[in-house]
């Protein structure tokens, strides 16, 4: 198990190298020149040239990449071209917002997805099953952007019961904590702020979770149906075990392996930044910020964000694999199997 984990962590190296190479080439080769964006419309051509020289943008591309790798290895991602602030500071100011939204969305999608999936499988071809199929179809097909706008129009524009944008009212905003507002306000006992943060989270969570909810529901349904048709389930039933116990302890636990994979993958992609949701709800996360930086050719930020997201994604996949062993004791990450 330990060997397997170390091996997987070591595999991060080629993955991150590949990711950095691709993002580096895309940014440096295909992105417009950042000098006019940074120096403004009044800058002279000489000033722009001097700026490019100072930032190594006139060096051969290979040297630029080696410089970037050297700095990245020491955790130095440089400063943002546009704001002149350290890249990590800019990212960490926004990453907790993305993490908080992703956690809420995946929790919502997992709990309701698994629940709906199980009910659909157990009550196959009934009204409940059809309703969950339609919901899943809507969740997969409806663009997040449109769903977000609809939610805003209904809950903010018409009913006036939920705030349409942002994370919390400015004066209730917790400072100096983790940046996860629900946690920060709860641990400091500021329940008014906690309530406000929770209200701000409802609509973005709903919009963001819809797609994952649909996928998890369908995956749970098919996995459960598959398991419920196994011989051991029939044996359990014939032994007189209650239907509830069969579903919960015999079927669901075995069906959870593919579901866990899907949840893990969904969580990884949500952490990558939900650009559309963040844009619609003015959610100050990493996704919409990265898009702004791409538009401004702010190379250091984009490269750092992509590397961080890739690392998180790979680590989440690793955690998911490790959870398999917890779910199914038959799985062992031995040398032979690894």
């Amino acid at each position: 198990m330990i060997k397997y984990t170390i091996k997987r962590i070591l595999l991060l190296i080629p993955v991150l190298f590949g990711v950095s190479l691709v993002v580096f080439l895309i940014m440096r080769v295909f992105s417009p020149d950042p000098a006019p964006v940074v120096l403004g419309e009044h800058a002279s051509r000489e000033a722009m040239q001097a700026w490019r020289n100072a930032h190594g943008l006139n060096d051969p591309i290979v040297w630029q990449f080696i410089d970037f790798l050297k700095n990245a290895l020491t955790g130095n991602f440089g400063t943002s071209y546009y704001t002149n602030q350290p890249v990590m500071k800019e990212i960490m100011a926004r990453f907790p917002a993305t993490v908080e939204l992703a956690i809420c969305a995946i929790l919502f999608a997992s709990v309701f997805g698994v629940l709906l999936g199980v009910v659909s499988a157990v009550r196959k071809n009934t009204a409940v099953d059809y309703a969950s199929t339609i919901l899943a179809l809507i969740g997969v097909s409806m663009p997040i952007f449109w769903l977000g706008i609809l939610l805003i129009i209904l809950f903010s524009g018409t009913l006036h019961i939920l705030p349409s944008t942002g994370r919390i009212q400015p004066m209730l905003q917790p400072v100096g904590g983790t940046g996860l507002y629900l946690w920060d306000t709860l641990t400091s006992g500021d329940f008014e702020a906690f309530g406000d943060a929770a209200r701000h989270l409802i609509m973005p969570t709903l919009a963001l979770a819809m797609y994952s909810l649909a996928i998890i529901t369908r995956m749970t349904r098919s996995s459960m149906l598959d398991t419920l048709n196994q011989d051991y389930i029939r044996t359990a039933r014939s032994k007189g075990i209650s239907s509830h116990r069969v579903v919960k302890h015999h079927a669901l636990r075995n069906a959870m392996i593919p579901i866990t994979t899907v949840i893990g993958l969904q969580f990884g992609s949500l952490l990558g930044g939900a650009v559309l949701t963040e844009t619609v709800f003015a959610w100050p996360g990493i996704g919409s910020y990265t898009v702004q930086c791409i538009q401004k050719s702010d190379f250091p930020v984009v490269q750092a964000v992509v590397l961080i997201i890739a690392t998180v994604y790979v680590l989440i996949n690793l955690i998911v694999d490790l959870i398999y062993a917890f779910l199914d004791p038959r799985i062992k990450y031995s040398k032979e199997e690894g």
Partner: peptide
């Protein structure tokens, strides 16, 4: 999470 936040408490802005 507490470790992330240092002392684990925060103040309002």
């Amino acid at each position: 999470v507490s470790a992330m936040s240092g002392c684990g408490t925060s103040k309002r802005a």
